[in-house]
Design a protein around this nucleic acid. Structure first.
Lengths: 118, 118
DNA sequence: TCAATATCTCAAGACACATTGACATAAAAG
DNA sequence: CTTTTATGTCAATGTGTCTTGAGATATTGA
């Protein structure tokens, strides 16, 4: 992820509805959710929802596929991890003060623990 | 970091000049840089710079202190790591697909390696 | 084909944001 | 106390973003 992509992603995430959609889709897993179900969860009208989903898709944070009458949206995990990696890249320019607490946060995460570098 | 704070931080970072200022200040370390030096690096006029620095400070991403005639700005590392932790918290809601590549990115980072959890 | 469902598109209006230029404030030097 | 240096404030302007409501498109089933 380079700076222009990161700016697009950050811009897309800096809006309440869109941030919530992304978090919802991350928890929804690779199958994603139909637009209607997302709209219901957000309490958003169809045009408003469509606007934000299109914005997220343009930023590369979500992807869509038609499935019958509905369209399913799902998170693009690579884009999210790429953004996190971009933000953390900062900390590697000689100043671990940012990185170290992030590592601690990561350790507290319930994900499969990182392979010990050894 | 909660959602409103994260939205403020993401909004502040989703602007080219501000993102560059933050990255510059992260590399500058805890001593930070005088506003004039930042402005020179950014090629920004004083009012434009002041506008963005104020925005970043309101979002809690940078802090300032007067030092003689100049004002030094420095990164608030806790805010940055908090934002990263907030973004990664998503991945802990049952779907490690986001988290795992981020862990890999972190491992490639030149920072002091995370203490093995054991 | 007609109707129903699901979603998107478009234009309009309101609001927020970024930039500029002129001016104001604060600190130090002479 | 006046000047110089460093930075912030303010109003104006242009641009971008969000929401709304009406309508268009695509898919399925009767």
């Amino acid at each position: 992820m380079d700076e222009p992509q990161a700016l697009d992603a950050l811009g897309a995430l800096s809006q309440e509805t869109r941030l919530r959609i992304v978090r919802l889709l991350v928890t929804a897993g690779p199958e994603g959710m139909a637009a209607g179900a997302i709209g219901e969860a957000m309490g958003a009208t169809s045009s408003r929802l469509s606007f934000h989903l299109a914005h997220l898709e343009a930023a590369g944070l979500v992807q869509s596929r038609r499935e019958g009458r509905s369209i399913r949206y799902s998170a693009v995990y690579d884009a999210l991890s790429g953004l996190i990696a971009f933000l953390m890249r900062d900390c590697c320019q000689g100043h671990p003060e940012v990185c170290t607490p992030a590592v601690a946060a990561l350790s507290a995460c319930a994900c499969p623990s990182p392979e010990p570098a050894a």
